[in-house]
Structure formats: structure tokens, C-alpha cells
Design a protein around this nucleic acid. Sequence first.
RNA 1: GCUCGGAUGGUGGAAUUGGUAGACACGUUGGACUUAAAAUCCAAUGACCAUUGCGGUCGUGCGGGUUCAAGUCCCGCUCCGAGUACCA
Length: 937
Amino acid sequence: MDYNFLKIEKKWQNFWSTHKTFKAHDQSEKSKYYVLDMFPYPSGAGLHVGHPLGYIASDIIARFKRHSGFNVLHPQGFDSFGLPAEQYAIQTGQHPSKTTTTNINRYRQQLDRMGFSFDWDREVRTSDPNYYRWTQWIFLKLFDAYYDLQANKALPIFELINRFEKEGNLNVQAHCDKDTPLFDAHQWNAYESDKQQKILLFYRLTYLSETQVNWCPALGTVLANDEIVNGVSERGGHPVTKKKMRQWSMRISAYADRLLNDLDELDWPDSLKEMQRNWIGKSRGASIYFQIENSSETIKVYTTRPDTIFGVTFMTLAPEHQLIKKITSVDQQKAVADYIARIAHKSDRERQSDVKTISGVFTGAYALHPFTGLPIPIWIGEYVLSGYGTGAVMGVPCGDQRDFDFANHFNLSIINIFDGVDVSKAAFSEKENIKLIHSDFLNGLDYKAAVEKVIAELELKNYGIGSVNFRLRDAVFSRQRYWGEPIPIYFKGDIPVPLNEQYLPLKLPEVEKYIPTEDGKPPLGNAKEWAWDEINEEVVSIDRIDYRSVFPLELNTMPGWAGSSWYFNRYMDSQNQMQWLSDDAMEYWKEVDLYMGGSEHATGHLLYSRFWQKVLFDLGYTNSKEYAKKLVNQGMILGNSAFIYRKKGTLTFLSKGLIGKYEVEPIHVEVGLINSQDELDLEAVKIWQKDFQQAEFILENGKYIVGREVEKMSKSKYNVINPDEICDKYGADTLRMYEMFLGPIEQDKPWNTAGISGVHNFLKKFWRLFYQNDHCLVTEDSPSAESMKVLHQTIKKITDDIERLSFNTCVSTFMICINELTTLKCSNKTVLEPILILLSPFAPHFCEELWQQLGHPKSIEFEPFPVFDPSKVEETTKEYPVSFNGKMRFKIKLSLEMGVEEIKQAVMKEQRTLDQIQGSRPKKIIVVPGKIINIVI
RNA sequence: GCUCGGAUGGUGGAAUUGGUAGACACGUUGGACUUAAAAUCCAAUGACCAUUGCGGUCGUGCGGGUUCAAGUCCCGCUCCGAGUACCA
């Protein structure tokens, strides 16, 4: 019997799938354990060895928990709406659902080969109408809710309407648009229904509004902030500009404080929590009102440094500020208009890349300092952002570097208000250990005391108010795409009307083209059947919108993060046709116990999904306000790219060592064409790409040596390692163990195929404890004390290490264990059986096979995990290192039962010790039982 | 700039609470078996010095400190990575 991994793995994968071994049961005596992976987007390129890293880790936990007696939910699915399938559709005319299905099937095949213990009966696909029906349902729940600041939670919108009817909105404290008008009950009841609906949009948790959006002309769609990286689109790297559009948004800003505070109770990586904290960006400070000279208008500024109020020498408004038109003096009007026009032409990217240049213009107007009454010139400056705070800042050049630079550039005055500080060259922006001067009633105070005092004063005199600000913006929810969830809304005029939930799912219509219409409408504008008939309650042809009861449906679709913001709940009850989730399933599964995924979702998916969970919690649809108590970020497996070097402007390629002073262009080559000595296979490269047939390769020592660089694994960099190839050559169990062995799970690490033999040899070595030359070695004799000791040391180490997710050390422990048992020639059933159970989460097929060979009729999957027995590893003696002043000199074997005093006496009797001390008495003897003896002399 | 991580042999990495640094694996070298190769097994492998025999010195990015004892704790740097970026 050889270790025939191909045969074994196929056999057990079939066994597991026909027996539905990993089916999770909704009712069980056992405690539940929910292990979740971030579900993949099924791209056309298939999986590479980096993708399954997190899945392997979570699978080990899932299997370990099953052995430990838990009813484990370990589901998987596909985030199957998205841009690549749509772009492929645009190019080829093939329906995205077809591409998606093909890709999913390929993913499924690859995943199955690795022996994951997923419960595929619960699979979800975000593009499946049976799934997105509930995504649409959640959208309607958000549409029908508002955020009440008194209750500090979302409430149904009808409660708000009731209040409006009784008392208007004068006493309503709710999270709403800042331009929301005030009205009393009488006014409200007198409003036309359309006007009432428009006002309600200011309150709804998902709402339509005219917003400045990030428009990507190349993709023809709007992007959220987290979909933009360095001013260009995350996908494709296309430029992004600003555009005003009527868009759906999600009022996530209402939840900023709770999203921030609840982070404290989550067992998530600190770095990830920190990223979310920064993204939410809470800051404390004050809003201060500045009266404008000779005008009734006031300008509100937000500052985190109200203590520096006496350092104010000017004020700057964002170019988009509404008051600019009103306050600009006659003689400055042209200059201001020119400036604003110039800024408006700049794209976001230009504005971002050019932060060094200082630009601005004087409005000709002055504001009055609230305390001194002195006039302060009002400027307009590009560096002030309209989106943050009030879009206006007070300029304190002595305390803020940007204000300082601005003041210097335009020759504005600078007052120093910090004691003993030189502000002639740069601003002083530190807060600690400094006292204020030239600051009237704040003189002599430090930062903390001054802030407190000035806010009290501002509030007393009604010049301002202490306030809190967030960086977090509402999330734009409309996408001008085809391949996404339709938004269940139709329009009567410009009033959005929600579809009643009984008509869900609102299925994606068929279209002829997947591109925007000629008049610039989203792709759904191409659909013929895309109007809602209120009377017949069905989707009908758009030709009928002239009929009284037929109205156009929303043409935008939902963004990629919609479907992924709640899928973890659906797994608990994925086949339910009546509800998004039954109460029983929710009651039993509660929330995710371990969520495994990449940190790249920190400010996207992981924030949006927390937001939706909180809304659903407030509205009573779930009883967990956080859906994942523990989260682990697996690192990335990086590729080891290979480069050849083309002499600039030629077809000549220089081996790495010959580049010298030549100007060369590095070009990626397929890593499969490189041997372990970094030598390029010249024949193969010419077959690989025809372009190289004409090329001349200059060799060193008869070889072409490539350059190497560690980068992200990607098809375009030709550094992809396909897991199928590894499975063919070494088997899935080797791949699983090797990926765990590469390093700590949360770390990025480069893939290196060369190292895999170590793990593969381990499995073969272990196999040889069972079989050699077709001969079974396993005996039922009672094992030696040494082998029992090896076993129990292993049990302890593995149990501890799995609990703390240190899988790389687990693999090492197994290797040590098998090396020792090999040395001991131990093939006792009593020892080998528990090791199979220990190892089975890592190498499941391998262990199942041997488990069966040992005569067990049932699968290994639910065997109880072996329990550590300390008595088996107990030692009576131990070698203690004896050191003098911390330096180790010799070892001494002593009984473990000795007390500290006995050990001291025994050590002092040692001849060598006495030699060391040479007559002088030791100052101190330190004994840590079981660890160390140190003699201070 | 700010925030958060890192830095240990030729390489990936161990060292869980301050207690024999370098486990385990790759790679390299030498050996056994073999006609040969593969496979397998054995030995050596941080650096330097001493090796006929023990052995010794230095070593966890750099400079200090605390301690009988520091990869681990404290202070000050350097470099690398990630996130974020006119956020007032």
C-alpha cells in the first residue's frame, strides 16, 4: 500500500458529498459553532494558491470544532454580481448570468478538490433571485425607517409620520438632511402628498438626493469612496471626476457613533478596528458662529481647536460654500467667479495630486471676531473641503501649518498666542505642555482647560457650541450597471414609490445591450419590460407608461456591497422561501463565531455589513447588533514574479548579471518557465509567446538568469500558481498543510513551491508507520511509555495551538511527533489512532483513509478529539541549566519533586558549583522550579 | 504628515507568562543504498577562534537603560510594510 493521494482524495470527497457529512443541523443537542469565510467573487481566472489560505484555516477550525462536539455551520457561497461579468457581457454579448454560472462551476470544482467541509446545501449566490429578493426586502426596510436620536435607534417611518401629523418636526430629534425645513402639524397636514414624500426622503435611511458623486466616465458609473484608490477607480484604474446626480444613498452616518463604540466589544484585529475608527473619523471640537460685517448672515465654522480662537486672523471658505455669492463685495466679484470656475474645472485627481500649491481669493467681506469684535478678512481657498465640517474654517496661522502657509502666501497677519514659541517659520500645532498668551480670558491656560472654558463661554454668549464631527459620509447606493440587484422602486413623477414586498423579487429584465442607453440612462434603460402596473401588480412593457396605472421602474441597480452585507445571516436559513431568516434559525445560530477574511474589506464590506446588521437589529429582525464577534484576517500569499530584461528599444534580452549600465525594461515572464536556479527555459519561452522567437538572449555562463520580485499574485504578472497543479503533484492534503506551514496565518508571505517537499515527506513518513512494502505494521500491543509521552505532548501542543490559530506551529509539532515515533519504531494502534484524529483537520483525506484501514466502520469526522493526560508526560527528573550571573555553565539532573530549598542544597553540593564559587558565598540563588537555576556571585 | 504593524541564520519561520535563541522545514555539504537515477535513510549546517581531546568569544535592525537574567520590558533612533491623507 502506497500513499496514493489522488485515489484517496477522490474517494473521500465522493464519500463526504454522498453522505452529506458536513450538513449542519438547525436543531441539535450540541452547542453551535459558526465558522464563516468571506465568500468569493467567481472571476474568470479561477483560483490561485493564495485564495484558499483563509478557507484552509477556517476549515481546520470547523473540523476541529466538530471533533470537539460542536454542531458546526461552515457554509460557502458566491458574491456573484459584479463588474467583470458585465464587462465580458458588453464585449461578447453573452448574458452575465452565463459567465457567472461557468465561473462558479469552475470555482466549485477547485474548492471541492481541496477537501473543504462546506455545507453546500446552504450555498447562496447574490445574483440568484431567491437570494436578492431578500436584499431588495432589506432595501425596503431601510426605505421605511428613520433614525431617531432620542431612542438612539432606527424606527419605522410611520412613527415619524404620526408625529408629524400631531406636532410637526419642531421637537423631532432625528438624523436628517441639514436642509430639512421646519414645520408644525398644521403645515404638515396642509402639504401636498408629493411635498410630504420629499420631506420624508430627508429622513429615510435610504434616500434619493441630488449629490456630488464620484463619476467614472470609463466605467459609466458612480463609485463609492472606498472604490476609489489614489483618485482612480479601484477596478481598472480609470480617472474619476465629480458630478451631480440624483442618487440613492444609505444614511450610514446616522450610525457613525454606534459603529465606532461597538468596535470595543469586538474581538477583531486591532489594526482593522483602527482602520474603521480612522474611517469613521470622530473628532471633538466646537462650532463657532462668525457674524459678517454689515450683513445679517453668519458663517459657521467647525474647529477642533477652539482654544486658539484668539489666534484667528482670517477665515477661509470652500469654493463650493453657499454664502460666497451673498457676501462677495462688488469689486471682488470677478476675481471670485474666475477662481471658482477654475477650481470647478479641476478633477478630483488633479486636486488631490496638487496639494502643495496654495491657491485662494479674497471675497472682499469681513467677519467679526466673536470676542474681540475685530474684522477678519474672509477668503476662499481650495484647501478647505466642502464635504467636511461646515465647509468653512477659521484661519489660525500660528497653530495650523496649512493656515500658516496660506497666510504667508497671501501676506495675511499672524498673531502668536503660544507662550515661548517661535512661529516665524512654522506653525506650532502641538497641544501638550503649552500655555496661551494674548488670549484674553484664556491667558495662562493649557489646551484642555482652554477648550473647556472657551466652549462654555461660546455657549453662554450664544457664539457657538461644543460639537462632534465625523469623517464618515453617507454611502452612495446607485450604480449605473446591469449586473446588480434591481432597486424595488418605481416613480410617480419624481416621487419614488416602494414596491410592496409581496411582489419581490423584482427580477432583472432582459436587455439587448449591457451598455448605457444613447441618451445616457443606465443599462436597464434598454429593457423593454421595465414598468410597474399598479392595478395588475406586475412588471409590464415601458410602452404602456402612458396608461394611468403604469409607472417607470428605477433604472439604477445596487452596488456590489449590497448582497454581501447580510449573506452571513442567510446561511442560517438559506432555503427559507417565506422569510429572510426564521426566528428559530436566528435563535439557534445567533451570530458568526469566527469570521475569516482579508483586511482589504476593512472600510468597505466590513463597515457596511455592520451598518445593515444594526439597522436590522433596531427594527427587530435579528437579535445580534454585531454579526461577527471574532474576526481574523488571513494574510495574502504573494507571487514570486520573474523578469527578463530587454535592452531599451531593442529585441535583445540581457541575463540579470549582465545589465550593468544598460538601460533595460523588465518584462514579466511566466514563472513556470523558470527552474529552481532562476534559469530561464529558452525553448519554452519561445513557445510560450511568439514574440520571443525573434528575440536574442544574451547568456551568462551559458544560462539566462531571471530577476525575481515578490508581488501580488495575478494573471497579468504571470506569477500565478494554480492549486490544481499542486493537487495533481502532491495532493490536497499536502497543499493544505503546506499553506499552513508557510507562516502565521495573518501574515503576508511569498509562495515558494520548492519548500513543499518537506510537508509531503512528512505525510509519506507518517504513512510508513502504517505500511511498508505492502505490509501492515500496526499492532495492538501496549505502547511504550516513551511513545505515549510523545503522543500526549503532541495532544497538548496541537490543542493549544489550534485554539490560538497558530497553524504553522501545529504542522511543526506533527513533524516532530512523527520523527520521534519513527525513531521509536512505534506503530501501536493506541498511539496512531489519536494522532489521526489530531491530524485530520489538516489532512482530512489522508486521515480518513488510514482510519478506515484501522478497521473503523464510521468516518473519522466526528470522533472526539483526544484529551491530554498530564500523567503520561510526567517526568521524575529534569536537566536544569545552572548559570552564574545569568551565564550558563552546566546542567544538572534533579528530581522534579524537589522543593526550592532542596534544589539549592543539591546544587551547592555539586563539585562544579563549588569550583565556580571559589570560596566566596553566593549572594543569591534564584530557582524557578522546572526552568532555571541562577547563582549570583 | 498622521495612525497601526514589522525587523531573529543562506531562506520561510519557532521561542505562548523576561529564564538553555535559532525548534520545524527548505536550501547547501558530506555519506549510505543503487550500474545509474529517483525514492529513502544518516551526519553536518548562526558567525568567529581553537581543534589530537575538551572548549571559548560574539550574536535577534542601531544606541542607551531596567534586571541575577532581555528577541521579549522602558527611552531614543534607522529602515521596511499597511492604512489614510489638505478632515481644520
